[in-house]
Amino acid sequence: MTPPKLLTWPDLVSRPRPHADATVSYGTDPHQKVDVWLPAGAGRHPVVLMVHGGCWTTSIADRTLMDWIAADLRASGVAVWNVDYRGVDRPGGGYPGTFRDVSTAADALRANAARFRLDLTRVVAVGHSAGGHLALWLAARPKLPAASPLRTPHPLPIAHVVSLGGLPDLEATAAAPDNGCGTEVIQQLTGGHFADTSVPRLLPLGVPQDLVNGTDDKIIPARLATGYVVQAKAKGDRVALHMIPATGHVELIAPETAAWAQAKRLILEVLKK
């Protein structure tokens, strides 16, 4: 049987690019920004808090990688808060900077909710690849150890998480030389601090989670998803794994694919759209 032809990054990024409705800065670095995608109507709009991947490395990807699915959600009546952050290759990135950036960007949603007519009672975190880890980590913030420098008071409540080909278990990822990000980047990201950065250490999250992964993903091995699901369920969390056939890594954020159709169904179901 001929293997399926999978999408490549040029297949995604070479297509016409949609544009956000506004951009909000939450710091002075060029990557400390959020793009806001607003649907038609008066609101208050349900919100997807979106986090891009790229191996936690700014030179690989930034928030614009998510533009196409952000536009698709906007057309379906959902606002998108698409966050950027300093990766491990930027001054101030890594531990604790990357995590503090994502936290600050998430909490800026609350500060801007009235301005953009956003419904803070309906917030779903959606992340792709490394962003899948960060989306789950944002939901885990109330479980951070009291002594952690990443802990902040009153983190933004998240109702649900959808991880698209994510890497939630940093310790398992660091021990997996076949993961597409490599193992050294985990040391750059965490500095060996797993207690407050690797999601399994913070279980149970107390938030429902859906993991959408491709059967033919050559970048993120499927066992990194299945292994996390076992751990999360053992701790009592509601977690579901959705393995999409004939699907690689890029398909997860391309709006015409079966993988995104499944992820979008999950998101809209939670947001009651």
Rank of each mutant, 00 (worst) to 15 (best):
residue 1 M to L: 13
residue 2 T to E: 10
residue 3 P to I: 12
residue 4 P to L: 10
residue 10 P to D: 06
residue 10 P to Y: 15
residue 12 L to Q: 05
residue 14 S to G: 12
residue 16 P to W: 00
residue 21 D to R: 11
residue 24 V to C: 02
residue 26 Y to H: 07
residue 27 G to R: 15
residue 28 T to A: 14
residue 29 D to E: 11
residue 32 Q to L: 13
residue 33 K to P: 03
residue 34 V to H: 02
residue 35 D to Y: 12
residue 37 W to Q: 12
residue 38 L to M: 09
residue 39 P to S: 01
residue 41 G to D: 09
residue 43 G to V: 10
residue 45 H to V: 11
residue 47 V to H: 05
residue 47 V to Q: 01
residue 49 L to G: 10
residue 51 V to A: 04
residue 54 G to A: 04
residue 57 T to G: 02
residue 58 T to I: 01
residue 60 I to D: 04
residue 62 D to H: 15
residue 70 A to W: 00
residue 71 A to E: 13
residue 73 L to I: 10
residue 73 L to R: 00
residue 75 A to D: 15
residue 76 S to K: 10
residue 80 V to Y: 15
residue 80 V to E: 12
residue 81 W to I: 15
residue 82 N to V: 12
residue 87 G to A: 00
residue 88 V to A: 00
residue 90 R to I: 08
residue 90 R to Y: 10
residue 93 G to T: 05
residue 97 G to N: 01
residue 97 G to S: 00
residue 100 R to E: 06
residue 100 R to H: 14
residue 106 A to Q: 06
residue 109 L to G: 07
residue 112 N to V: 04
residue 113 A to S: 00
residue 114 A to V: 08
residue 115 R to H: 13
residue 117 R to V: 08
residue 119 D to R: 10
residue 119 D to F: 14
residue 120 L to S: 02
residue 120 L to G: 08
residue 121 T to C: 03
residue 124 V to P: 03
residue 124 V to A: 07
residue 125 A to R: 08
residue 134 L to Y: 02
residue 137 W to C: 04
residue 143 K to V: 07
residue 147 A to K: 13
residue 147 A to C: 02
residue 148 S to G: 08
residue 157 P to L: 04
residue 159 A to I: 01
residue 160 H to W: 11
residue 161 V to I: 12
residue 161 V to W: 03
residue 165 G to D: 09
residue 167 L to T: 00
residue 171 E to C: 05
residue 173 T to N: 01
residue 176 A to G: 02
residue 181 C to H: 09
residue 182 G to L: 01
residue 183 T to P: 08
residue 187 Q to S: 14
residue 187 Q to I: 05
residue 188 Q to C: 09
residue 189 L to Y: 05
residue 189 L to S: 03
residue 190 T to W: 00
residue 191 G to N: 08
residue 192 G to M: 00
residue 193 H to I: 05
residue 196 D to G: 04
residue 199 V to M: 14
residue 199 V to S: 07
residue 200 P to M: 05
residue 204 P to S: 06
residue 205 L to R: 09
residue 206 G to T: 01
residue 210 D to M: 04
residue 210 D to Q: 14
residue 216 D to R: 08
residue 216 D to I: 02
residue 217 D to P: 05
residue 217 D to H: 09
residue 218 K to R: 12
residue 218 K to N: 10
residue 218 K to H: 13
residue 218 K to G: 03
residue 221 P to K: 09
residue 221 P to D: 03
residue 222 A to R: 14
residue 225 A to N: 13
residue 228 Y to P: 03
residue 228 Y to I: 03
residue 228 Y to V: 09
residue 229 V to M: 13
residue 232 A to Y: 13
residue 236 G to M: 08
residue 236 G to Q: 06
residue 240 A to W: 14
residue 241 L to T: 07
residue 242 H to G: 04
residue 243 M to L: 13
residue 244 I to Q: 02
residue 245 P to Q: 15
residue 246 A to R: 15
residue 250 V to E: 00
residue 250 V to R: 00
residue 252 L to P: 06
residue 253 I to M: 02
residue 256 E to L: 11
residue 260 W to A: 02
residue 262 Q to H: 15
residue 265 R to N: 13
residue 271 L to W: 01
